[in-house]
C-alpha cells in the first residue's frame, strides 16, 4: 500500500539560551499508509503538534525530509488534497456556520451552496447553520471544524486532539465521523491524548516522547502480550501445574483455582483437561493489554529511547 505520509529523519530544532539547541522533533521516521487511521500519541510537549505543522508546511524542518501523498512537504498542490483540524480551533466568531464554510470553500474555489449544506448536515449542524460561531458550543465548533476540513474532499485529514474537552455525546459523534472517513477511503492522522478513543478507532499508532518515536506499529501487534485468566473448580493447583503451561501463574481462590497465562496459549486444551478430570470451568477472562498500559510503559520507561521521561504520576495524569 502507498504511503500517505513518509518522513525520514525529520528534525526540528530550536535555539535556547539556557540549553543550546533543543530537538523538539528528533530524527522522526514516520510511515502512514493510505486509507488507515493513524494515532499519533505522546505526552504534552512531546512534539506532536510540531510534527503536524511541519507536515502541513506551516513550519519548516531543520533537517530531514518528509513526503505527504507522495509530494515533498510544503508543496502547494498537496494542500488541495489534505485538510487540518487544529487543537482547540477558533473560527471567526461573527460568521455563521454556513458563512464559515463559504469562506473556507472560497479558498479552494468551491462555491457550492448545496455542498456546504450537505456537509453541515453530515456533522449534524444543519439546524444551526444560521447561528453565529459565537453561539456554538465547544462540540458544535469542533463539528463545524470537521465540516470545513471536508470541503475539499480530502484524501488525508490531520486532526489535532479532535475530541479534546468534549462531553461523552460529542465524543461519540466525532468518533463515528472519523470512522466514517475511513469507510470513505480517507487517511486520518490523529494526534490525541484520548487513548481509549484511539484504541477504538486507530489501525496503527506511533508514540512520540521528547521528540523521539518510541514505538510505532499496528495496534494489534503493539498490544500483543495480554494474558488469559482461567478460574476452575474441582481440581487442585498441582493438577494445573502439571499441565506445564509456560509463563503461567497459579494460585488458589475461595471459589477454585486461578491460572493466568500468556494470550498465545490455547485455553481450549486446559479447559478440556479440566473437564476430563471432572472439574468445572468457572470463568475464562482475556486480560488484553490496553493502549493506556503501553503508553504509560513507553513514556515512563527510561530504557526505551534511553531517556527518562515524564514522571509516572504525570503520565498517569495524561492518561486520565
Amino acid at each position: 500500500m502507498a504511503a500517505a505520509i513518509e518522513t525520514k529523519q525529520l528534525t526540528k530544532s530550536y535555539k535556547s539560551r539556557a540549553a543550546g539547541n533543543i530537538n523538539v522533533v528528533d530524527n522522526l521516521d514516520l510511515h502512514v499508509e493510505e486509507g488507515e487511521i493513524f494515532g499519533f500519541l505522546g505526552p504534552n510537549g512531546a512534539g506532536k503538534t510540531t510534527t503536524i505543522k511541519m507536515l502541513l508546511g506551516i513550519i519548516y524542518p531543520t533537517s530531514g525530509e518528509g513526503f505527504v501523498l507522495g509530494k515533498e512537504i510544503g508543496d502547494m498542490a498537496v494542500h488541495r488534497l489534505i485538510s487540518y483540524l487544529p487543537e482547540r480551533p477558533y473560527y471567526y466568531e461573527h460568521m455563521t456556520g454556513l458563512e464559515l464554510l463559504k469562506f473556507y470553500g472560497s479558498l479552494f474555489g468551491i462555491y457550492d451552496e448545496a455542498k456546504y449544506r450537505a456537509l453541515l448536515e453530515k456533522v449534524n449542524l444543519h439546524r444551526d447553520m444560521t447561528k453565529t460561531i459565537s453561539q456554538y458550543s465547544k462540540g458544535m465548533q469542533q463539528r463545524v471544524g470537521l465540516a470545513q476540513s471536508l470541503l475539499n474532499d480530502p484524501k488525508l485529514l490531520f486532526l489535532d486532539e479532535p475530541t479534546g474537552g468534549l462531553d461523552p455525546i460529542a465524543h461519540r459523534e466525532i468518533r463515528d465521523l472519523i470512522l466514517s472517513f475511513r469507510d470513505e477511503g480517507r487517511t486520518v492522522f490523529i494526534s490525541s491524548h484520548e487513548l481509549s478513543e484511539v484504541e477504538l478507532i486507530c489501525d496503527r499508532v506511533a508514540i512520540i516522547n521528547k521528540g523521539i518515536i518510541e514505538r510505532q506499529g499496528k495496534l494489534t501487534e503493539l498490544l500483543h502480550g495480554g494474558r488469559i485468566e482461567i478460574t476452575v473448580g474441582g481440581v487442585d493447583e498441582a493438577f494445573l501445574k502439571g499441565l506445564n503451561i509456560p509463563d503461567s501463574n497459579i494460585r488458589g481462590l475461595p471459589v477454585g483455582v486461578l491460572m493466568d497465562m500468556p494470550e498465545e496459549q490455547d485455553p481450549n486444551g486446559i479447559i478440556d483437561a479440566v473437564r476430563n478430570r471432572k472439574g468445572t470451568v468457572i470463568s475464562v477472562v482475556p486480560r488484553r493489554k490496553r493502549l493506556e498500559d503501553l503508553f504509560v510503559e513507553t513514556v515512563t520507561n527510561p530504557a526505551l529511547g534511553g531517556k527518562p521521561s515524564v514522571p509516572p504520576a504525570v503520565a498517569e495524569e495524561i492518561v486520565k
Binding site: 502541513l56 483540524l85 487543537e87 477558533y90 473560527y91 471567526y92 475539499n152
Partner: peptide
Amino acid sequence: ERRTIYTILSKPVQ
C-alpha cells in the same frame, strides 16, 4: 494566537 492562520495556511493559500 487564535490559530486561525493554521486552518487558512493548510489550505491552498500562500
